[in-house]
Write a protein that binds this DNA or RNA. Structure first.
Length: 424
RNA sequence: GGAGGAAUACCCAAGUCCGGCUGAAGGGAUCAGUCUUGAAAACUGACAGGGCGUUUAUAGCGCCGCGGGGGUUCGAAUCCCUCUUCCUCCGCCA
């Protein structure tokens, strides 16, 4: 959420920067007008409340002394309905402003490239050597089906489209990657490991920025409560500290959090229908940080390195891109994507997204810290990144490590987890 | 699923039946001081915060705030409704 106080200082600046994402943000001016009206009402209603409080105190004193208070009471007999009228109007305006702010995305960082689609993202670096094959490399769905480690037909029988069953060494590969990633981040990179609930409430979805804008992409639990399957470990993990004042000596907080993620993929009908690139259910290891504002940028860089390290150790070629304004997620100020090379389709595909939300989520989630005992609370900065999307890592391993006979070599670092060096 | 009980400041806890000097007793912890070579103990003092509005202002002043939301009332920690969470017992269960 953006800060209404800052918006009213300089609405032009906000409209200009938001417009870089694409779309019409002129409603910001209406909101600023409403905000002005809101403060006028507050001024009036609080004046009346002050009178009421003073008068009620007098009545109390008179009654205690067994004196007649009826004359004083007569003065304020209608004050309740007067206040009520203002409060009804105030509530309406408050809701309008709050809902408008909830729908308004974060300001893109001024440093990031301006653009409309992923075509405008700027490549920062390429790492690793793209493998060459003296045969035609197969897509992962063929490799997986041939080896009987991925079963799409039975998954659709059990659940429907966009699900998969991992079998045998395929299942073990998924599990090996989860353990490898969690070990790397928690032991080598000094993140605290978190295993959160997979079902979250509405407040959590709002706080991290998924709701209200992207509600159609969430799986709702049919239940009298409002609960949702978590779409990314970012949601429960950011919400670990919702409405908390974090002791300053605890910052930065670094978490690595594993969950299965569930998404409707509402806007993606027809895209990536084959294979396990885009499923309703997938596993992901996530990195989440809470930092002081002045440190969030360097923490973003180190988070990128931590995610890259997974791919370096797995010996998978990748590139890093700086997302343009049009491709940026709603909560984020700046995002790096890591894309892995997929030889069958001869393209880079997103496997990881590393972002700095700065104070946007912290304001929604009300997460603060105090520099000293006497200083005013400030919002922390929040960062999150995948490290990595496990299913897509399986894709990258299957495709990059395939051999002519259809078997798959296992990257060296995974052999202790896999107890084998080949899937055949 | 059934039957009860509870939620008050950093922690414990009084107040809630019978609404008004309760912007919330008391204790602990913490911080500062006295004493001491230093510390402990004892004693003295401080200790509700956060949000909002006004404002040059982390000054003042006002509004809100006793789990969340709503209601009754001139006035609610206290009465009513509702939700959430926690605890005890019974049942069920991995």
């Amino acid at each position: 959420m953006l800060d209404i106080k800052m918006i009213r200082e300089n609405p032009d600046k906000f409209v200009e920067l938001l417009s870089r994402r694409g779309g019409d943000f002129s409603y910001i001016y209406d909101m600023v007008e409403k905000d002005k009206h809101r403060r006028e009402i507050i001024l009036q209603v609080e004046k009346i409340k002050a009178i009421r409080n003073e008068t009620s105190k007098q009545i109390g004193l008179l009654k205690r002394e067994k004196k007649d208070a009826s004359e004083v009471m007569k003065k304020v007999e209608n004050i309740g309905s007067e206040i009520k009228a203002f409060e009804v109007e105030l509530k309406e305006i408050d809701e309008y402003i709050y809902n408008t702010l909830l729908m308004t995305p974060n300001l893109p960082d001024e440093s990031i490239p301006i653009g409309t689609t992923e075509e405008d993202n700027v490549e920062i670096k390429r790492i690793g050597e793209i493998p060459t094959f003296d045969f035609e490399p197969l897509p992962h769905w063929d490799l997986g089906t041939n080896l009987d480690i991925l079963d799409f037909e039975r998954a659709s029988k059990i659940s429907g489209s966009r699900f998969v069953v991992y079998k045998g060494l395929g299942a073990r590969l998924e599990r090996a990657l989860i353990s490898f990633m969690l070990d790397l981040h928690s032991i080598d990179h000094n993140y605290k490991e978190i295993l959160p609930p997979y079902i979250v409430n509405r407040d959590s979805m709002v706080a991290s920025g998924q709701f209200p804008k992207f509600e159609e992409d969430a799986f709702k639990v049919l239940d009298e409560r409002e609960l949702f399957l978590n779409p990314t470990a970012e949601v429960p993990t950011i919400n670990l500290h919702r409405s908390e004042l974090i002791p300053v000596e605890d910052l930065p907080i670094r978490y690595t959090s594993f969950t299965t993620a569930f998404r409707q993929e509402a806007g993606s009908a027809g895209r990536d229908t084959r294979g396990i690139i885009r499923l309703h259910q997938f596993n992901k290891v996530e990195l989440i940080k809470f930092t002081r504002p002045e440190n969030s940028n360097e923490e973003l860089q180190s988070m990128l390195e931590d995610s890259e390290r997974v791919l370096r150790l797995l010996e998978i070629p990748y590139r890093v891109v700086n997302l343009c304004t049009g491709d940026l997620g709603q909560s984020m100020r700046k995002t790096y994507d890591i894309e892995v090379w997929l030889p069958a389709s001869k393209q880079y595909r997103e496997i990881c997204s590393i972002s700095n939300a700065e104070d946007y989520q912290a304001r929604r989630a009300n997460i603060k810290f105090k520099r000293t005992k006497d200083s005013k609370p400030e919002y922390v900065h929040t960062l999150n990144g995948s490290a990595l999307a496990v299913g897509r890592t399986v894709v990258a391993i299957l495709e990059n490590f395939q051999q002519e006979d259809g078997t798959i070599r296992i990257p060296k670092v995974l052999i202790p987890y896999m107890k084998t060096d080949i899937i055949k």
